[in-house]
Design a protein around this nucleic acid. Structure first.
Lengths: 394, 394
DNA sequence: GTTATTTTTTTTGGTGCCCGAAAAAAAGTT
DNA sequence: AACTTTTTTTCGGGCACCAAAAAAAATAAC
């Protein structure tokens, strides 16, 4: 990118851009590409000298926690993943309280292998399943720690000079969407995850929303149908009791409703089996999906009435079954919500992709970097120009 | 307030405060109280010279629109109401399209009576019932205009030099709460209004939330009980179909469910009558309130699961019936939501007061003034100090 | 091949906002 | 009267930014 473009984007004068970039060049944070000549289509005039972020100057670390693994990624300042690693942590065997230490050493080992000095890491982002308290930097409840409350951010902060944070995985998907396509995913939108549980991510007024105690967007339990199906939370009529994979298998196989969700070996295989049954016309499977779709419609109605999102994104492993649920979903939506409100949003159905969590961590880290280091610059542009935000998003 | 305090609050150095205040003194926007000596308890040292906002320098106008009236208030820079006036506008008789003109002339006449030059007015805030599109400055649907879409902000903007805006009345109540007691009403909280309809105001992440198209927080229609009571929106099982005054009267008097809400003369008198019946032990009235309370509990459960507010405020004319609904409300909440989520919030039941709408307009106007004129100062303090926000809120 | 034109980058010389340090002011204390 | 305390003001300076001019590096025109 040329200096003149940077000036356009940040709304700083060419003079200021020169001053700042020459500072950054001295610090080695950016590089000038004078040697290579990409010969742009530009006709005449002094050619632009392109600048790029120095690849090795600043790194970000992304950690994704699942039941058995710590997945680490080393990301450079340009947002490119440089290196990946999976470290085993069997939460069934090991004591959950040893986890923070295990995470710190895993990161240390990872950096050593990559030959990166820990002092060059300036952000460490962690994504976990379950209920995450962003403010206190703890995992309040997660299947990975069999429900125990584990502090994550504080131990990391002690061990590394980097800024550390932790967030919910669904929230990271939401952030990833905004990062990958800001023109489509901006302002106010909702992400609904159909998986083992049923989660939701909310992006409101151009920022991630996680509620007063960080447990907002509990879409799976935000529905309530009096006297409805039994949920593993103990209540009746939750969305999860119709839509999560164990609930789908339970309903389609006519298992007693108090069957322990764990004994229903649902997961990926159970869902695949159910999809097969539905594909071959099995009435029980089709009925189950239809009922699930209707309840999903109710849930979407609720989100629209409460939040009024521009867009709702449906994703998670279970979207593969969307074709079996679509019709009844629209019917449920129509049954539950007046047309005026119903027509103000669009629905994206997005095939599920695990990498989104990492993208979200990258996006979040980048934004935090922005705030911490370039805060002054972004404030400037905000103060001066409230005009064309299009140009800014480019 | 003394200069030294201003420095503390804004995190500016005493030198800068002196520079800025002497500017403002020259401009006549603030006054120095050197003559009066309030003899504070301060022991020694150079006495503080208190500064105050100049009463006549800058004015705000607040306009509240109801079915028959335009209620105007003139507010000075200190947030004190200087003058009030009610202007009739019979929306049943007059054409709705003549309303913007009527509003402009009402304001002009009001200013003339008050002897205030229109150029000294720097904010005009309008609050309306119904569906308000804040972005476009229009009333999209309101009982006051029999459902017609009326532009409000543009005509005002043309007629006056002031910054103009329009907002929903429930949103203004939400803003008023934050303004009146920021320590209690900050961060993320919800306001539920029980009235002719059932409205909600959401304050999320320290800002008013109104959704992508400005129609968020449709609490009255966010509930859905399959096969439930018929709502005037045409759907079944909305909260409004149980909780609004017409629904209460309808249920307690066993009127057919398709009775036109307008013919049910509910309003204040209908509700008062119902309260009397309940007070004297009328079983139908008591049952009605009990059912309403249970459904309210469902609705609150939904808000908690979706939004996770720190606090929920219950207000509106119908809170007078709260004692008849309370028990079943808690039962409904317990039925619909798992305890972990249920215990994270507190409930305020607040007697309804019409003045809250005006307070909200004042608060909103003040905040806008802050942004427009003092933006630089507040950015400064944000950049420098992320420490004790308590001091700032003082 | 020289000159004009176009476009980007750099230099120069401010301007405005803010701060720290020191001084001044206005009291009380000893 | 001298010292202490607290608030306010003055003064010199730093930082971030900008406008305008100059420089640089290419193409276009003659």
């Amino acid at each position: 990118m040329a200096r003149i473009d940077l000036g356009q984007i940040t709304r700083l004068s060419p003079a200021t851009v020169t001053a700042i970039t020459s500072d950054l060049l001295d610090q080695g944070l950016i590089l000038s590409l004078e040697s290579e000549e990409p010969k742009t289509h530009q006709a005449r005039g002094r050619p632009r000298t392109l600048l790029k972020l120095a690849p090795g100057a600043v790194y970000i670390i992304c950690a994704r926690l699942s039941v058995n693994n710590i997945d680490l990624s080393l990301v450079n300042f340009a947002g490119e993943v440089v290196r990946d690693k999976r470290t085993k942590f069997d939460s069934a065997k090991a004591d959950a309280s040893s986890f923070p230490g295990a995470l710190t050493s895993a990161i240390r080992a990872f950096l050593e292998e990559a030959g990166v000095d820990p002092s060059h890491v300036c952000e460490i982002g962690v994504a976990a399943q379950g209920v995450v308290e962003t403010e206190t930097g703890q995992v309040a409840w997660s299947p990975a720690f069999s429900g125990r409350k584990i502090p994550i951010v504080a131990p990391l902060q002690d061990a590394f000079a980097a800024e550390c944070y932790i967030s919910n995985d669904t929230n990271m998907i939401t952030e990833a969407l905004h990062w990958s396509d800001p023109s489509r995913y901006s302002g106010t939108f909702a992400v609904i995850m159909l998986d083992y549980g049923v989660g939701m991510g909310l992006y409101l007024n151009n920022q991630l929303f996680s509620g007063a105690s960080g447990t907002a967007a509990e879409f799976g339990h935000a529905n309530h149908i009096p006297g409805g199906a039994l949920c593993r939370c103990g209540k009746r009529g939750c969305l999860e009791a119709y839509l999560s994979d164990y609930a789908l298998v339970r309903a389609a196989s006519h298992l007693p409703e108090d069957t322990d969700p764990v004994t229903i070996k649902a997961g990926v295989s159970g869902l695949a089996q159910l999809l097969e049954r539905a594909g071959s016309g099995d009435a029980d499977a089709l009925d189950t999906f239809q009922e699930a779709g209707r309840v999903l419609g109710y849930g979407i109605a609720r989100v629209i009435a409460m939040i009024d999102p521009k867009r709702i994104v449906l994703t998670g492993a279970a979207v593969r079954a969307f074709s079996f649920m679509e019709q009844s979903m629209w019917e449920g939506l129509e049954e539950a919500l007046v047309a005026d409100l119903r027509n103000n949003f669009s629905l994206d159905v997005m095939p599920w992709n695990e990498d989104f969590i990492r993208s979200g961590l990258i996006a979040q880290s980048m934004e935090r970097l922005d705030k911490d280091f370039l805060g002054a610059a972004s404030q400037r542009s905000r103060r001066i120009g409230r005009a064309d935000s299009e140009e800014l998003s480019a």
